[in-house]
């Protein structure tokens, strides 16, 4: 944790994406107009959510291979962070949909898939809450975590691509590649993604450290 350069990098990239996302010029398109700037703030949330759940999934597998309380703590912290980004992703999407589609919840396949995958991770926390034994809690929730991540893949990546959707990038609607005629948007979009992912890792690492300190305090209390 002594290496703090990536934390500075995260802050710099996020400030750059806020300023760039609001001020740089963007392609003008009918209907979407200025709301295209939502791409800089909405899409990175999903990238970060998938990255967080991915790290959580990876640590759940590591836990099952070699049980160790630390890995469980890491897995939970990343699932938590991923859930937070998922909720932010839905909220930012709803703000955008309200102006572009006319209503915040439009029953779009992508919206529904995202909502369901967030439900799956809520179920993960319900499962953790209902088991007393620490070791059993860690193992069962690791199993559910792996199952949940695999079940999330068809929801987020496959089904929305098959059904007609009003979401940009689906069902004949222009996606990122068509908006972005001269790659100007990528200059802000990719740094934003990296910045948010680093921020997510930072949040999760703080939670892990808090949990470790709590455990040390509990042990000393005995």
């Amino acid at each position: 944790m002594n290496n703090t350069w990536w934390k500075y990098l995260s802050i710099i990239l996020l400030f750059y994406s806020f300023i760039g996302g609001l001020l740089f010029s963007v392609p003008r398109l009918p209907i979407v107009n200025e709301t295209i700037r939502g791409l800089y703030f909405h899409v990175p949330m999903w990238f970060t959510m998938v990255a967080m759940f991915g790290i959580s999934f990876y640590n759940a597998i590591r836990y099952l291979r070699k049980p160790n309380g630390c890995l469980d703590t890491i897995s939970v912290a990343y699932a938590n962070a991923g859930l937070a980004f998922g909720i932010l992703g839905i909220l930012t999407g709803m703000v955008w949909a309200n102006y572009t589609w006319g209503s915040p919840w439009h029953g779009d396949p992508k919206q529904n898939g995202a909502a369901i995958s967030i439900l799956v991770y809520f179920a993960y926390f319900v499962l953790r809450g209902s088991i007393e034994n620490e070791e059993q809690k860690a193992r069962l929730s690791a199993v559910y975590n792996i199952f949940a991540f695999v079940a999330m893949i068809p929801l987020i990546f496959i089904i929305p691509r098959m059904t007609s959707s009003m979401h940009p990038g689906n069902g004949g609607n222009p996606g990122f590649n068509m908006y972005d005629l001269d790659s100007r948007m990528r200059l802000v979009f990719y740094p934003a993604c990296i910045g948010w992912i680093l921020l997510g890792i930072w949040i999760a690492s703080l939670r892990i450290r808090m949990k470790n300190v709590e455990e040390i305090l509990l042990d000393n209390g005995k």
Partner: peptide, 15 residues
């Protein structure tokens, strides 16, 4: 718990 765990996962199949 069974219902909570299974419903979200089943939905993609059901759809």
């Amino acid at each position: 718990l069974m219902a909570v765990l299974s419903f979200p996962i089943i939905i993609s199949i059901l759809l």
